[in-house]
Design a protein around this nucleic acid. Structure first.
Lengths: 333, 333
DNA sequence: CGTGGGATG
DNA sequence: CATCACACG
């Protein structure tokens, strides 16, 4: 969509204040605009004689009840939750930890903590539910990126990064080894506004896939986190408008396809192959979450041979505190 | 005070969270510390057997009722209010304009608007009480400095800056000519943490004094605004601790003395020569305003020959919305 | 402690 | 529309 067609759209649809402010700043609305559905809720009474698009009741997604056993009836013995927090400190102020204490997973994986280890709030560093805590922060830029893994039981071993200097300075990956599997949590690099970092992302995708394949040869693995890609059209509300935007370019989608080809499965899509409107991220802009104009960017990806052990892959889209919602995996390990 | 004695002080006095965060960042606490009175309000019950300094009831200042006539009985016909807003947009959100509509001065002078003219909220640009509005913003840095003058009646002429290139890029001075006087509003450059900008301030003081003296030869003038200096010990709570700090260095105080020597008077001090605890600024830190640990940095300075026309010089220290309070002048012009 | 911008998402 | 770091006060 070009600037002019957007401008028309704005004029025609009684823009929201947020969008108006964006427009004022001039650029970078094309990338976001595709996520916004025109919202006439703040519009004056529809003029008679003109076709006005209805406010349209949003199509929500209600995650079904957790299934706690495998197809062949074995009970789940491991519960893993993953959440991109968009800033751990703000998320704590918004009572994110209360939700965690309700969910009570065995392992909690966090992305975009945006917090140096020394600045972590005491509420989380002293959390007795998870005696074993692992933090990775961005080295250069404070308050950027950052992932964490919090565990009830101690892993056999924990490593940081993917073993390539060029990728390992931004606090994006933690790997924990458990007796029967590896758990990898990742915050995959965003391709950026205007796709300025798409090239880097492509090399990341190659190297990260290599890293996972190597691990997978030792033990099966579970990968979770914000993979910063919506794989197929079903995985975001507005595929048409986002083909040129970070998270839905052909390159990023192909990267995910290649990952699956290397012997992994997208657990949610495996269980719910036709499920539409199931998203884990909504831009804060344009009231997208209320309208469920979202993206599925957060995944549990499993070594294919773990599939018989999969019980359920959940999207906790009622949990608030970030622009992402948490996801939870039930599995037998 | 050096770092070590401060550290002791912190340990001994059950620091507040705010101060703790400051300490965490390492430096630049010495400059602020002199403004803080130790606050044990958040402290655990005082340990027996140790001398604990009492929380000490703050010594407040209640501004007396407005005197609306001169000594010789002429009624005031001009009311001018000056306020350092510390960010106009935040100040509007904090209902600063409601206070202005109550006060309803003939002229409203604002400092530290921190807002480019194009970003001004409509609430103030469309304010019918002041049909004549003048704005000066910082050229290079957005959201820095900036002054304004809002008038009920139109001035004969309005100028910006003090006529010296080097001083006139930061939106610090507006001068309005009225039939019988000049009104100058100023946001004088802060000498900065560690006095990094004290040298510049000294040249400013010289040049600004020159500018005012020239004006004063044409018509008497009223200067108002944040002059960023507490003149005498009586003009701040903690003179001892602030001798090396911006706003109370010998150089800045001498600059103000020289200004008065050039034929001007500090209207408030002229009327209330012995009044202690009368301040117009309190740092947001360390709960200083509640404890009235403040500075008098905002002034109405008059050409000496206007003194017979002076009615009152008020400090509106109950008005909230900034770290400065407004001041108001009643005069006959 | 609180305001602004700017980078990033 | 949010997060955070930074500059400035």
């Amino acid at each position: 969509m070009n600037t002019w067609s957007l401008r028309l759209l704005l004029v025609r649809s009684s823009i929201t204040r947020g969008l108006a402010n964006m427009a004022k700043r001039g650029k970078k609305k094309e990338e976001e605009a595709a996520d916004g559905q025109k919202d006439s809720s703040a519009a004056p009474p529809a003029k008679k004689g003109k076709k006005e698009k209805e406010p349209e009741a949003p199509i929500l997604y209600e995650d079904p009840p957790d299934k706690l056993s495998t197809k062949d009836g074995r009970p789940a013995n491991m519960k893993i939750t993953s959440w991109n927090l968009d800033g751990l400190r703000a998320w704590i102020k918004k009572k994110g930890l209360d939700w965690v204490r309700e969910e009570l997973p065995d392992i909690l994986c966090l992305q975009e903590t945006k917090c140096a280890e020394k600045s972590l709030p005491q509420e989380i560093t002293s959390m007795p539910e998870f005696p074993h805590k692992y933090w990775a922060g961005s080295e250069g830029k404070e308050g950027y990126s950052g992932v964490a893994m919090l565990c009830k039981t101690k892993p056999l071993n924990v490593t940081y990064g993917i073993g390539k200097e060029e990728h390992d300075k931004e606090g994006r990956v933690i790997t924990a080894e458990f007796p029967t599997f590896f758990l990898v949590t990742a915050y995959v690099p965003n391709a950026g506004r205007g796709l300025v970092r798409l090239d880097y992302r492509k090399t990341w995708d190659v190297d990260f896939r290599g890293y996972l394949s190597e691990l997978d040869q030792k033990k099966p693995l579970v990968l979770c986190g914000d993979l910063n890609v919506a794989h197929q059209e079903i995985d975001l509300k507005n595929p048409k408008g986002n083909r040129k935007n970070a998270g839905f370019t052909a390159e990023e989608r192909e990267g995910f396809t290649q990952l699956l080809s290397a012997g992994f499965v997208d657990s949610f899509r495996e269980l719910y192959p036709e499920q539409e409107n199931a998203y884990t991220f909504w831009t804060y802009m344009m009231n997208s979450r209320a309208k469920n104009v979202g993206w599925r960017l957060d995944y549990f990806v499993l070594s294919r041979r773990l599939l018989p052990s999969l019980c359920d892959s959940k999207i906790r889209n009622t949990a608030m505190g970030s622009d992402h919602c948490p996801i939870t995996l039930h599995i037998v390990v």
